[in-house]
């Protein structure tokens, strides 16, 4: 049973990584930039839902909606103010700007909310009113899966299906794929590239808000640096699965979550990160474009 419960905790953590990785991968696919500020949008999402519950007194679900709205607006603002002017610039300049935005968000949160960790109220309480764990019990109570893990896995699947449908079957989604393929050709076909990129950032940031709420539900301390490490792990997940690929982000996220949980359980708590990164290195050596990534052939 130990193995199964580690597996389940790995999958639910992996689902959160997958949701974050989706944001990374979509932005990378279309804007060809590493958005290092994505992890901090997660943190802002966490704080927004925290504020919603604490100060506005709304319940967790409304707070989630609030966080999503705020993060969507934030994503569009970041893209419009910081990244859009640099569309033609060298990728390193965009990367440094993204790092600047990341510092900006972290330090704004530090100024507003302070450095002391906030105790976060999980979206679905871990204990019910009777003091029993809020969990699904299987095998006569030997294996319990908390409802929040179930909800996380479910929302990850729903988001995946919705995004696949969106990019495959709607006009906006097709515009998105066209822009990621060839911006100039897309512009000639009458697609507004700027609007499409804004939309991508909006979707990515809304997903980051969901991920922030879920992440804080698992790990109920909220600090200005909460988003950085999950952000980096999710970025790893996106690369692992093949950056730019939506199913790749799901696969990468789940695998990273499972590897992390297994490494913590069976190898060493200290070296869990190293194991994750070592697996990433090996995968990239065997498949340089990630598991599901497309290998681009270079034209001379």
């Amino acid at each position: 049973m130990g193995f199964l419960s580690y597996l389940i905790s790995g999958i639910s953590l992996g689902s959160v990584y997958a949701i974050i990785a989706l944001g990374y991968t979509m932005v990378y696919g279309i804007a060809k930039m590493l958005n290092f500020a994505h992890g901090d949008v997660i943190m802002i999402g966490g704080y927004m839902s925290f504020c919603g519950m604490m100060y506005l007194g709304v319940n967790g679900w409304l707070a989630l909606a609030l966080a999503m709205v705020v993060c969507t607006v934030l994503g569009i603002l970041i893209e419009g103010l910081a990244y859009r002017p640099l569309r033609q610039a060298a990728s390193l300049a965009v990367l440094i700007t993204a790092i600047g935005v990341s510092y900006f968000l972290q330090n704004s949160a530090l100024l507003i909310f302070g450095a002391t960790p906030k105790v976060y109220q999980p979206l679905i309480p871990l204990m019910n009113a009777a003091g029993e764990p809020n969990a699904l019990k299987l095998f006569g109570g030997q294996l319990s899966i908390s409802y929040i893990s179930l909800f996380t896995m479910l929302s990850c699947i729903v988001i995946m299906i919705a995004l696949t449908w969106f990019t495959g079957h709607t006009k906006l989604g097709k515009a998105m794929r066209a822009c990621s393929e060839d911006k100039d050709a897309a512009r000639l076909m009458g697609i507004s590239v700027d609007k499409t990129i804004s939309l991508t950032f909006a979707i990515g940031s809304a997903l980051a808000a969901v991920a922030g709420v879920l992440l804080c539900s698992f790990n109920p301390t909220l600090m200005p640096t909460t988003g950085s490490m999950p952000g980096i792990r999710a970025f790893t997940a996106a690369v692992f699965g093949g950056i730019g690929s939506i199913p790749g982000a799901l696969l990468g996220g789940l695998l990273i979550g499972i590897i992390e949980a297994m490494a913590k359980a069976y190898i060493s708590t200290q070296l869990a990160n190293s194991v994750v990164f070592a697996v990433l290195i090996v995968v990239l050596l065997v498949r340089p474009a990630g598991l599901l990534g497309k290998r681009m052939t270079e034209k001379v």
Partner: peptide, 9 residues
Amino acid sequence: MLIYAVVLI
């Protein structure tokens, strides 16, 4: 650090 971030951007 906020100033640093703004200057950087």
